[in-house]
Design a protein around this nucleic acid. Structure first.
Lengths: 248, 248
DNA sequence: GGGGCACGTTGACCTGGATCAAAGGCCCCA
DNA sequence: TGGGGCCTTTGATCCAGGTCAACGTGCCCC
């Protein structure tokens, strides 16, 4: 039965490819700090993957929650919708980051997660993650750190929205992206934005025109080079200065 | 040794008073959903209390983290400081709520927690909480829910800061306070603000003058009665309508 | 019980970013 | 290869909330 064998082989190849033990995001993702033995247990739990096409939802606000997701490849945004139609992007997530933590509180997702490019996630059934983190102390602790880090990140965004002016917000945004790309081994100075000006604006509490103008101003001042979604950061210290020093 | 006996008795009384098993905040706090046996284990862990005077810090940004705190009585604010001196209130916390979750991520507190009135907290050594939540599934799950709820709350604040106008923000703030007081058995319509206009403004991303003007407007419109820190809410539906309907 | 000080209110004016409008540029698909 | 739709840029104008200033008010401490 050559057909059957071929199938079996394909599947096992897929599983190997998915395994945390083989994943180059280990250091950014859940397995951080685990030993081989422990990662093997994770592998079992995370055997399931999902591909999400650009523009598609990974989950929607209101849907039942039973798993969190680790981004294996791609780029997402999360957003919250108010009854009156207003919405706000609450974050942009890239490879190695977790999605869905908002759903734990009520067993219902409280925001939408949308792929901004063709993406792939590892499905982590939450009940099994809790089970495993009762066994593996390191995993438990690391998971708590990840949740806490999300809280700290949110405080940073609140700071940004509450106290910074438009150009400071955009500078903070660019520096944050740059730093996260660096951590993933990409250039810290040159990247493609996966999101529109409007989505950036929504995240930063600004209108798209304001975002566009700020990009232009940064370009005039030699801080960055922009061409549509392609960004080259020319003067990181300059952006940092603008971000902090511009206070009254 | 009558003196010694008296002391011993005082201490044991204090311990009994502190115990989760005797605390009327059970339903709001960590013990939620635990059985008697499990709560007894919590009691052991939470044996330590701290009193914080109005104006004093429970912890400061930069300090080492090794415990979270459950508010037993009183009222707190948390705030984040930027290098350039700007700061932002990230939340107001009342009885039954947890403080310090931000410290888990780096084992360092990332914000300040300040008592806005004389307060008392239960000290929950974090390592022991992790230990106990490996034993008690319900506790583990509930703790995860609490962290997740904090993330969802933060998204709500981001929404508020990113998309709402001044009066909408203040209405949302008042309704939120009212709802939390209600959950604690207090009047949902009448309460004392523990924070200044400036602190409210900082939390809502507004200047204190704007907060003051919004209060005055609400009063003119018959939505609330304000006298300094004493607030009486007269028209909850009116506030809700203002909050959602005022969109463009 | 009175003086000082922090907090709160209100008014007048200013400005950063929103809004409205119009005109490219890019990409996808036929 | 051309057309249509979406994204982006840029300009002109407007306004919510910031800023500056002055005056009230209540409370705490001496």
């Amino acid at each position: 039965m050559p057909l059957k064998r071929a199938n079996a082989q394909e599947i096992s190849l897929a599983v190997i490819k998915t395994a945390c033990s083989n994943c180059n995001l280990q250091e950014l993702c859940l397995p951080l700090g685990l030993n081989e033995n422990e990662i093997a247990k994770l592998d079992e739990m995370v055997s399931n993957r999902r591909k999400i096409k650009r523009g598609d939802h990974l989950y929607r606000a209101g849907e039942g929650f039973d798993a969190i997701y680790a981004i294996r490849a791609g780029f997402f945004k999360t957003d919250v919708l108010l009854e009156d139609g207003r919405d706000q992007v609450t974050g942009f997530q890239m490879a190695g980051e977790l999605l869905g933590l908002d759903g734990i509180s009520n067993e219902i997702h409280s925001c939408n997660a949308v792929a901004l490019e063709d993406s792939e996630v590892c499905v982590i059934p939450f009940a099994r993650l809790e089970g495993l983190s009762r066994e593996i102390v390191t995993l438990q602790h690391h998971f708590h750190k990840v949740m806490s880090r999300e809280i700290v990140r949110d405080h940073g965004v609140m700071m940004l929205l509450g106290t910074m002016r438009a150009e400071e917000r955009l500078a903070a945004f660019l520096l944050n992206l740059s730093q996260r790309f660096t951590a993933r081994g990409y250039s810290h100075a040159e990247f493609y934005l996966r999101m529109t000006r409007e989505e950036i604006g929504s995240y930063l509490g600004l209108k798209l025109e304001t975002v566009s103008r700020a990009f232009s101003r940064f370009q005039e001042e030699g801080l960055i080079a922009v061409q549509q979604k392609h960004i080259r950061i020319l003067d990181i210290p300059g952006l940092k200065k603008l971000m902090t020093h511009q206070s009254s």
